[in-house]
Design a binder for these strands. Structure first.
Ligand SMILES: [Zn+2]
Length: 349
DNA sequence: CGCGTTTGACCGGCGC
DNA sequence: GCGCCGGTCAAACGCG
């Protein structure tokens, strides 16, 4: 009964996929049996948007309901279950749309709140060593519910050409355009490691040679992938091979990891309470690479951001739990799993 | 043995 | 339709 994931994944993916409009890749629902447990009793459902997100929702499902009964009746109820699957699929799609809309609205509100708080509480103990106030002064008009934020021009951290390029592909979908920023790091041209120490943990998922640059480009995702979908690309500059160009895409929704490799275990952040100032102010003891401001025309974003609570994850979990409490959904899922496994067993024999 | 990296396959968009 | 190209996937690899 315990099939490898490559055999389980495809049938489920073919039956239980939904297109999430905010992302290019569809939302897949991975199902596999829990280790050391009766597979008829517990299944784990993983909804993921990419290959590293499979721990986003970990909900133990009690699927004891009617497994044997469905075995008996599976021929007579196949069409009904297919219809049910379609209905659940459509419902899942609608829920995904609602969820993304809610997250977008939340992000907009959060940004406004942060600007408001920063303006009022302007003690500014945030000393990022790039303290010259290149942070664009927010006009802080509180009626800024204007859709300019949705248009993605709220915080221009990239060059003007890039902004034009980004605005070109705007569709009417209510998608908050994730910001793209470029940071330049100085390294030795000799090392080919193509990593920059920016305080966050990254997972490499690709490397390509590009057209007009002899050095390859490396693709990274944030290590805490399900909750944070920040990506970055690192490539050497064409002009100066000793400069690493890191292109960040999105913003972290979590604080920086402890970043001090020397003392491990102790002194770890318990940061669910207040805002953490993640940037190490002392230059001497800072092990992070400092971004380089190349010219006066290029703006460099300081690598410190403020984390925000993982409301998106919470929403997804709530959605998943409400979904798994639906007996229709569980019944349809159980039917799909057992039917596919039955087919698999038949074809293997 | 587990997990992160490597690396060729794969995919969609775009220009012709 | 075809080929190019940037981006992603995922099986294999390899290191601790
Ligand atoms: Zn992150």
């Amino acid at each position: 009964f315990l099939l490898p994931p490559s055999q389980i994944k495809n049938p489920i993916r073919s039956t239980l996929t939904t297109n999430l409009p905010a992302y290019r890749t569809p939302t897949r629902i991975y199902v596999h049996t829990h280790k050391n447990q009766d597979p008829r009793r517990f299944l784990h459902i993983y909804t993921s948007m990419d290959q590293y997100s499979s721990s986003l929702v970990d909900t133990s499902l009690d699927l004891t309901i009617g497994i044997t009964r469905m075995r008996v009746e599976e021929d007579s109820t196949t069409s009904a279950l297919v219809d049910e699957l379609k209905r659940v699929n459509a419902e899942n799609k609608k829920l995904s749309e609602m969820l993304t809309l809610m997250c977008d609205n939340y992000n907009v509100l959060r940004k406004q709140l942060m600007e408001y708080v920063n303006k009022n509480n302007n003690t500014a103990e945030r000393d990022d060593q790039t303290s010259p106030p290149k942070k664009r002064k927010s006009p802080a008009r509180d009626e800024a519910i204007s859709s300019a934020v949705i248009g993605g021009v709220s915080e221009s951290s990239s060059t003007d050409q890039d902004d034009q390029y980004l605005c070109k592909k705007q569709r009417e979908e209510t998608v908050v355009k994730e910001k793209v920023s470029r940071v330049y790091y100085k390294t030795e041209a000799s090392d080919t490691t193509l990593v920059v120490k920016d305080g966050y943990q990254w997972r490499k998922y690709g490397q390509k040679v590009t057209r007009d640059n002899p050095s390859p480009r490396a693709y990274f995702k944030c290590a805490c992938a399900p909750s944070c979908s920040v990506k970055k690309k690192v490539q050497r500059s064409v002009e100066d091979q000793s400069v690493l160009v890191a292109t960040y895409e999105g913003e972290h929704n979590h604080p920086m990891p402890s970043q001090m490799d020397s003392n491990n275990g102790l002194n770890r952040y318990v940061s669910l309470g207040g805002p953490v100032a993640p940037a190490a102010a002392a230059n001497g003891s800072c092990s992070l690479a400092k971004p380089v401001d190349l010219t006066e025309s290029k703006k460099v974003r300081s690598p410190s951001r403020i984390e925000f609570p993982e409301v998106q994850k919470l929403l997804v979990e709530q959605m998943a739990s409400s979904l798994t409490k639906d007996p229709n959904f569980t019944a349809a899922l159980a039917a799909a799993v057992t039917g596919r496994l039955y087919q698999q067993n038949q074809t293997e024999k």
